[in-house]
Design a binder for these strands. Structure first.
Lengths: 139, 139
DNA sequence: CTTGAGATGATAAGATTTATCAGGTATGCA
DNA sequence: TGCATACCTGATAAATCTTATCATCTCAAG
């Protein structure tokens, strides 16, 4: 289970491990692509307060355990991650897949060269239509 | 001037060309990396209503003329774009540069192959420290 | 087990975003 | 060019979302 690695990373990065934070992370691992508000509603029945959800998302994102990405309608949606991944998002239904390959380190080095920036990381989101939505008629 | 190309693209994509939308785009071209709210405040003196700014940002983003990206503190920030570009964002001062090279079409094809998704595009944001912030001076 | 820094929940306060509607204006066509 | 109309705008109100506050609780280091 990934729970072990999650615990390890939280430990390493000095992020306190509370049941609420674990619940937030798990929700966004099982259902990636929710907004914070949607997460608030999903966790309400478990007795987790909305302020806590907001704070947890920030803490986890800070620790690199959640990834935010812009979705249609100007929404900011989140997905749980452990390692560096790229996201593949369906523009129609919002389904999110993680892509575990990254060959952009060469690109990063090149950007450093050309710009003088110190590069620390990147976020790549690929947009398209998932197999199911590809088939389906118009939205 | 890019204004010509901008007009052309708006025409092509059926986005109505109003003074307000042009103002929003120009602001985010000169000062990329603003939140919508910051844009609202910047355009208030010009007599552009807040609702209009919100609507314009959505219309322009939809037409691929603005790019949204997640910034620290959970903010969604925007930059004006004409073509497909990658963004280079300074984590400390928020400076935004556009990178006009993209060699990810091969990657997109590969993702299509492997996942069955129909890929329509991608967003790549590289994070780091700009030369000035690298030194340690304040933003 | 003890202890203290930091997290939580409830609620209030504040900020952002959207809805509504009367009036205005870009754009296609004659 | 001038017209008609579909779409846009500004103002304001209403709805949502986000943060602040504070008393209490709990994780985790020793």
């Amino acid at each position: 289970m990934q729970t072990q690695r999650l615990a390890q990373i939280m430990q390493e990065r000095g992020v306190r491990r509370t049941p609420q934070r674990l619940a937030v992370w798990r929700l966004l691992a099982e259902e990636p692509g929710l907004t914070i508000r949607e997460a608030v509603r999903a966790l309400e029945p478990e007795g987790i307060g909305q302020a806590t959800v907001y704070r947890s998302v920030k803490a986890l994102e800070n620790a690199g355990l959640l990834l935010g990405f812009p979705a249609p309608r100007g929404e900011l949606r989140y997905a749980a991650v452990l390692d560096h991944v790229h996201l593949l998002v369906c523009e129609r239904c919002g389904a999110v897949r993680r892509l575990h390959e990254c060959r952009l380190s060469g690109y990063e080095a090149e950007v450093e060269q050309k710009t003088g920036y110190r590069v620390r990381g990147h976020t790549l989101v690929v947009y398209g239509l998932c197999p199911r939505c590809r088939e389906g008629g118009e939205p």
